[in-house]
């Protein structure tokens, strides 16, 4: 009951946030010079003024900005994201088609970074100043400093071209028509390199935050108390320190979930992964405003949902916090 009220309240609060984002985006985007018709005509080599007028009329670009905004708002209230004239397709279906690959890549990378990062942080903290600690610190520093696209290209050279273990790019083997577990295996093989390229940076961040956080907790009075009660070192770690030490990591992860959508544009481009990131980039380049606004809207909603989820995770981790 309490949970339901909390969720309802938070969702209610997020409506003005999302609405503000929508309105702000609409006007920001229209500040960019050039329009979809001129880009399309530019790609065609040459076009007559009539042809460009025809395009502008079709795209609704010949209407005053206020009218365009009104139409846009009205559509949004019906949860209709509009039509991408450049792609000859409704915006909603374009985004939904890309949401699954992006979600898969994001969640895989995010989960891997979170789990492995916290584990490494824990291992480093428990053996402070040992060779384990030094090694993990070194690795995370390198991972932190390596750009994702460079790492991606190097992995392609080594694992796809030299060793031939993994495919270079794409979501699955085109034209292979795999089904069932074959398809899962195929997608998995394609997922490995982009997920690693995306995860490594965050993994390094979480490992370092976790290490610092654990070290901070270990010096606390309640840890001394637990040890005095005669609990084993392992039990102290898993039962007492871990939960408390995770809080800063979760905060960090929540903030960075938004970044992950942005960071995936680069990785998606390198690996030809058919995600929302490349869709957004192309939409911006071609001034496909309906599509771009649709993507902004969807990612704004995603960030709101993720923040909500983070707040819920807090409560699970630390019973002192209340909804």
């Amino acid at each position: 009951m309490r949970l339901a009220r909390f969720l309802g309240y938070r969702l209610l609060l997020s409506i003005p946030v999302v609405l503000g984002i929508v309105v702000l985006n609409f006007f920001l985007i229209h500040l960019a010079p050039g329009d979809a018709a001129s880009v399309l005509a530019g790609e065609s080599g040459a076009a007559s003024p009539e042809y460009m007028e025809q395009l502008r009329h079709k795209f609704g670009l010949d209407q005053p900005l206020a009218t365009q905004f009104g139409v846009y708002l009205l559509n949004m209230l019906h949860l209709d994201l509009g039509y991408s004239f450049r792609n000859d397709s409704p915006v909603g279906s374009l985004i939904v088609d890309r949401l699954w690959p992006t979600g898969l890549l994001m969640l895989t990378a995010f989960a891997a970074a979170l789990v492995i990062g916290t584990l490494l942080g824990l291992v480093a903290a428990t053996g402070r100043n040992s060779w384990r600690d030094a090694l993990i610190s070194l690795v995370s520093l390198v991972a932190y400093a390596t750009p994702g696209f460079w790492l991606g290209l190097m992995m392609i050279v080594v694992f796809a071209i030299r060793l031939g273990w993994l495919p270079t790019s794409g979501y699955d083997t085109v034209g292979a028509d795999n089904e069932g577990w074959d398809e899962v295996w195929d997608v998995g093989r394609h997922l490995v390199m982009p997920a690693v390229a995306l995860a490594l940076f965050y993994l390094a961040v979480y490992a370092r935050v976790m290490r610092a956080s654990v070290l901070e907790q270990v010096g606390m009075d309640y840890v001394t108390t637990a040890r005095a009660k005669g609990q084993t070192e392992a039990r102290v770690m898993t039962g007492h320190v871990l939960r408390n030490a995770l809080l800063p990591v979760v905060t960090m992860a929540g903030v960075q979930a938004g970044n992950l959508i942005g960071g995936s544009i680069v990785v998606e481009t390198v690996f030809g992964w058919p995600g929302v990131g490349t869709l957004a980039f192309n939409a911006l380049q071609s001034r496909d405003l309906n599509l771009l606004l649709g993507i902004f809207f969807v990612s704004a909603c995603l960030v709101v949902v993720i923040n909500l989820a983070v707040d819920l995770v807090y409560v699970c981790l630390d019973p002192r916090l209340e909804l």
């Binding site: 290209l153 392609i156 071209i161 270079t168 790019s169 085109v174 481009t269 390198v270």
Partner: peptide
């Protein structure tokens, strides 16, 4: 039997796909 046109946005990856025989 079939032609598949593939789209790879990154130039280096396009070259890699040719070199890997994909």
């Amino acid at each position: 039997n079939r032609i598949v046109a593939r789209f790879i946005p990154d130039a280096a990856t396009r070259s890699a796909a040719m070199e890997a025989g994909e």
